[in-house]
């Protein structure tokens, strides 16, 4: 069905884009690319979780936990171990939240995850001795503050996220995820380990978002709770994955590029206050006009084109026979 080349296309494009941007070395484009890459990682991670039917509004919790874990552990155990701590803490938080929300369906799940994310923000403010409170905290700066290396590292993380997403879309996982999402009882009856799969998806998703958050914190070496725990980081992944096309790898990538580009345009036209109005407008237009996202639209176009060629060939064949 899919040829090897189209499957490799996202990897090649990401690699080429990253190398080209590092080569050109224009600060504006590098910052923009870093923004796109970080949001794309969170969107891919959100999508991975949603494939098991868990539509989360709690991404911000992991984003914030990631940056805070790195900042808190780095002075204690050193940089390398602190990055490992990010993975471990995010995995633990994901397991905990996954188990807590296991029985919740649909809207209840969304509200509970949203509640978790907002509670984390409050937790940070309530324990200022550990977290620095609302004044913020200083995670170690990523790649000594060289934007080109930062982009390179975040690009690598994006490649890893793409590879994970592709693996989970492969034959080994996709049918199980699909069954858990659509008919969980049937999945359990046919021997799919529903609980383990759901928690597994939660962990993969949470760790990816946490790593993205840690990178984000390392961009400037300074974060405040309202920066990383904001509901924006919960809504953005959902919006990007949905606008791009869910249950695909390329969808969140396209969505991230489209939305970030739009944001830049809006910021220069409207200014710093209220520029996010375009998010609202675009989301509403998409939900009405193309509920399957960009990928859905492309597929429809491809199907249409395909039908035309098939019809054309059939016509030719008929003419030949006649």
């Amino acid at each position: 069905m899919k040829t090897g080349l189209t499957r490799l296309l996202p990897y090649i494009l990401i690699l080429l884009a990253t190398l080209a941007l590092v080569w050109i070395d224009k600060p504006f484009w590098i910052q923009l690319a870093i923004g796109v890459a970080i949001t794309a990682i969170t969107a891919l991670a959100w999508d991975i979780l949603s494939r098991t039917g868990q539509v989360s509004l709690g991404s911000a919790a992991f984003f914030g936990i990631g940056s805070y874990t790195l900042a808190i552990f780095e002075p204690l155990i050193g940089l390398t171990l602190a990055w490992i701590a990010v993975v471990v803490v995010c995995a633990l938080a994901a397991t905990l939240l996954g188990l807590l929300t296991l029985r919740l369906r649909r809207m209840y799940f969304a509200i509970a995850t949203l509640g978790f994310a907002l509670s984390m923000q409050v937790l940070v403010v309530v324990f200022p001795d550990v977290t620095g409170g609302s004044g913020g905290i200083a995670p170690p700066v990523l790649a000594d503050g060289d934007p080109r290396w930062q982009l390179g590292l975040i690009g690598l993380l994006l490649l890893a996220a793409v590879a994970l997403s592709d693996t989970l879309l492969g034959l080994r996982f996709r049918p199980a995820f699909f069954m858990i999402r659509t008919k969980p009882e049937l999945a359990a009856a046919s021997g799919v380990p529903v609980v383990r799969m759901k928690i597994f998806a939660f962990i993969v998703s949470g760790v990816l978002i946490g790593l993205a958050g840690a990178c984000y914190g390392g961009l400037y070496g300074y974060v405040v709770p309202t920066d990383v725990f904001t509901t924006n980081w919960s809504v953005l992944p959902l919006a990007i994955a949905t606008l791009g096309g869910m249950d695909t790898t390329i969808g969140p990538l396209l969505g991230a590029i489209a939305l970030k580009a739009l944001e830049e345009v809006a910021r220069s036209v409207i200014g710093g206050t209220g520029y996010q109005v375009v998010y609202g407008a675009v989301i509403i237009l998409f939900v009405i006009g193309m509920p399957q996202g960009i990928v859905g639209l492309l597929r429809k176009a491809a199907a249409l084109a395909g039908r035309r060629t098939v019809a054309g060939e059939k016509k030719k064949e008929r003419e030949r026979h006649a």
Partner: peptide, 9 residues
Amino acid sequence: IGLSILLIN
């Protein structure tokens, strides 16, 4: 959520 973002902004 889109509506909410739109109205706030």
